[in-house]
Design a protein around this nucleic acid. Structure first.
Lengths: 195, 195
DNA sequence: CCAAAAAGCTAATCTCATTAGCCAGCGGTG
DNA sequence: CACCGCTGGCTAATGAGATTAGCTTTTTGG
């Protein structure tokens, strides 16, 4: 019988896809093996452990995530960049909840962990976007943390189904971005939208 | 030999304490049993399953969480209430990471789930706090969602050790609360603090 | 003091992750 | 074309955890 022809990348990609389908927490070696048409122990020829698999999925996920945000911010500035980037992030998380969870659960293991550059890429995009607001020195780090908190919090709460009231969640997200934009733009409500 | 004298409440409380110590994810029936000086199967005389235990911990946690926020907001309004409540929440999460994780992982199972009133209590406190800002009709729900996203996001990122830069995290938290307060107060930076 | 309910315990089952050891397909070499 | 070594897949076995079954003994109401 011919071999399945798996390799690290294939197994990782399949794991990521499966995590999106069944939830990162429900991802198991057995389920993944079945999905790949192989017996469970065979997976260990490509990943050293379930933790290793999870880490590889996280690296893959964070790079895709970084790509999505970078592309959404490209060529835009200020409010445009904020809104585009934030919506891209939200869309990506809703489309890839398992990958997002894997990325959040991952821990940097050492100085040459490929997770590190992936994380940096995400932060670099947000930082570049914030530069458009020309904040005072020292405010950048606070604004970045606030932005991350807000977007990450919104994404996880939404993914967890914690927004239960009927009011449209899209509206809340847009409202929140407006709030941030106005605040960052220096409390000058209409300065950016007036003709 | 005398009995250990356990009951549901004791087991749940011990489980919550253990979750705070070792992390909610590392909580196991065996570890809890050992902590209580009993054999693992004995726990099943008090909780029906590990999922049941986790749910009970979540209910306990959310009620304690609600208490902390209610107490912090009591007797204050506007910025005072926001800052006090937010700091109380942050302090509570840092002191009880396992409980907080249990509360987040919990899912409402039915219409008479005791988790429901606990969640409502938390939301009610935040809603009451926001009333102090006299927002326009329809804005409340958006502001509430933004507040939850921001605080939950900050708390989870901080608990996960995701804020790695040296800059003081306390400062970022305070900066974020100022940002929110200013925005909610209607983009009138000094209207609330001027004599 | 007695009987039933409650709370512990041991032994056994099941699900998973992981390891050990065997065997066959594949690619390159003579 | 036959051969060799590596690699990827397989079966069998181990070990941690959750959970269940069934037995025993403390507790408690009468």
């Amino acid at each position: 019988m011919p071999r399945a022809g798996l390799d690290q990348a294939t197994v990782t990609a399949a794991g990521a896809a499966l995590a999106d389908e069944v939830g990162f927490g429900a991802l198991s070696m057995g389920l993944l093996a079945e999905r790949l048409g192989v017996r469970t122990p065979s997976l260990y020829k490509h990943v050293t452990s379930q933790a290793d698999l999870a880490h590889r999925i996280a690296v893959l996920a964070l790079n895709e995530f970084a790509d999505a945000i970078r592309d959404a911010i490209q060529g835009r500035a200020g409010r445009e960049a904020l809104v585009s980037g934030a919506h891209a992030m939200r869309r990506w998380v809703l489309a890839h909840p398992g990958r997002y969870a894997a990325g959040n659960a991952a821990v940097v293991t050492g100085p040459d962990d490929p997770l590190l550059p992936a994380v940096q890429r995400v932060l670099a995009s947000w930082t570049a976007m914030l530069h458009g607001y020309r904040l005072d020195r020292g405010q950048d780090i606070h604004a970045l943390r606030m932005l991350r908190s807000m977007l990450h919090g919104f994404a996880t709460l939404e993914a967890a189904g914690s927004f239960r009231i009927a009011t449209d969640i899209d509206d809340s997200f847009t409202w929140m971005l407006d709030f941030i934009d106005h605040g960052l733009a220096g409390n000058q409500p209409d300065s950016r939208t007036a003709p």
